[in-house]
Design a protein around this nucleic acid. Structure first.
Length: 427
RNA sequence: GCGGAAUUGGUGAAGGGGUUAACACACCGGUUUGUGGAUCCGGCAUACGUGGGUUCGAUUCCCACAUUCCGCCCCA
């Protein structure tokens, strides 16, 4: 048997898992403060949920879906993004009902899957932290979502990121813009990159995203979406950017920002980090936007919505560099060593008592020699070592030592019921 | 999907077609048995990603595959 995890997956080991817990704990706290509640949807859905929402010509559907047929012949896909499943649940579970306060705000933290070549900050199984807000078409809902993303990154300690935003307007706008792009690029077709020639027929919007050298020269003069926005879309976008201005949130208007999923309709945005040590080119750690028709597409009532997703692996890469303090190893409060006849069970009793008092506490189940126990305490970065010695115990006493400076004090056994009071003697 | 590099023990690694795979760190044990983080002593890869091939003989050469890393595409 080959003992090897599937390509593009990773084991999050103890030590590493603590970092994840801190990030997720902070995120949960943050969402709770904003009144967002958690939603958990299945890891897999019927294939159509994703193919219809993301768009048949999107890369996600065309080549990155992790799909298979189950034993019942159902075409299943592991979720490649978070929004579709939440929208499905919103419709199926009738969360649009009048008894539910609008907007309906949720967050999720979940594994996500894309069948791709792994590289820095890109795995086949990765994790997304996301939010969705259903039911409001007010620009303030867009602003609230962007502010949430901005403030969450700030709370976690991400320092250098750039917020790119753009607007895609409604379906008529998109159609008109689509046609304009085809008109512009078709005469140039022969000079475009192979990929872009293909995109021209399928999804010309994608050409704007191209980084191919052949294409670059044509991009500056390509039609801009802003010129095709109708008055309402324009007013909407302006309202959003004005409010961001007032709130002091910096952003870059990025006409070429497209996003990989077809369901976006209004404002779209990405928080990008440019760090040569991490990635050769600027990389998106958070992306999102407005999708006003997806609920309808899933046979629900017309429901405007907006949300974003954060790539947790990428977030961690950035945080480890920009806010390493967040991940300072914790160590345990107390390690109990014991020596001599009749001290073992006393040790267990003390450990249970200390844990009950809220101290993290361990002892040596291997019952090695005292020196070995101290070595263990040191390796576990214990703050204090409490020693249960047979001789001391006979006098009703215990010894506690602070490892940082070697200071050691003795105290009566009964005082162990309130260790905090004992520890205060060190100060 | 395309291009490039890598793959030796718990880790970082040196090495080289043929009887002991260097060195370091970590770890384990000891330094006469009630105290850590120092020193000293000892131990620690029948093994060099997998499968083929070349050869008297390969971990060392060749091929394929796998995985990892980097870049492109795209995105989280």
């Amino acid at each position: 048997m080959r003992v090897q995890r599937p390509k593009g997956t990773s084991d999050i080991l103890p030590g590493e898992s603590g970092k994840w817990e801190r990030v997720e704990h902070q995120a949960r706290k943050f969402f709770a403060l904003a009144g967002y509640q958690e939603i958990r949807t299945p890891t897999f859905e019927n294939y159509e949920i994703f193919s219809r929402s993301s768009g048949q010509t999107s890369d996600v559907v065309e080549k990155e879906m992790y799909d298979f047929n189950d034993k019942g012949g159902r075409h299943i896909a592991l979720r490649p993004e978070g929004t579709a499943g939440v929208v499905r649940a919103y419709v199926e579970d009738k969360l649009y009902g009048p008894q539910i306060v609008k907007p309906f705000n949720v967050f999720y933290i979940e594994p996500t899957f894309r069948y791709e070549r792994p590289q820095a900050g890109r795995l086949r199984e990765f994790h997304q932290i996301g939010v969705e807000s259903f039911g409001s078409d007010n620009p303030l809902a867009d602003v609230e979502t962007i502010v949430l993303g901005h403030d969450l990154l700030a709370a976690l300690g991400v320092k250098n990121y750039e917020l790119h935003i753009n607007s895609l307007g409604n379906q008529q706008v998109r159609q008109a813009y689509h046609d304009a792009l085809v008109d512009y690029f078709t005469p140039l077709k022969g000079q475009l990159s192979e990929d872009s020639q293909r995109r021209l027929g399928l999804n010309p919007l994608r050409i704007l995203d191209s980084k191919a050298e052949e294409d670059q020269q044509f991009l500056p003069n390509a039609p801009k979406i802003v010129d095709y926005l109708d008055d309402e879309s324009k007013a909407n976008f302006k309202a959003i950017t004005d409010q961001l201005d007032h709130l002091g949130i910096k952003y870059v208007l990025d006409n070429d920002l497209v996003r990989g999923l077809d369901y976006y309709t209004g404002v779209i945005f990405e928080f990008m980090v440019a760090d040569q040590d991490l990635w050769a080119s600027p990389t998106t750690i958070l992306g999102g936007g407005r999708y006003d028709h997806l609920v309808e597409e899933f046979t629900g009532p017309h429901t405007p919505a907006v949300g974003f997703g954060i790539g947790e692996e990428r977030l961690l890469l950035v945080l480890q560099k920009q806010n390493p303090d967040l991940f300072a190893p914790a160590g345990i409060d107390v390690f109990i060593t014991n020596i001599g006849e009749g001290t073992t069970l006393k040790t267990v009793e003390l450990a249970r008592s200390l844990r009950g008092q809220g101290f993290s506490c361990m002892y040596d189940v291997d019952q090695k020699k005292l020196k070995g126990q101290f070595r263990k305490a040191d390796r576990l970065q214990a703050k204090y070592v409490l020693t249960v010695g047979a001789k001391d115990l006979a006098k009703g006493q215990l010894t506690i030592k602070r490892l940082a400076d070697g200071q050691q004090i003795q105290f009566d056994l009964e005082q162990a019921a309130d260790l905090q009071a004992v520890l205060e003697q060190f100060k």
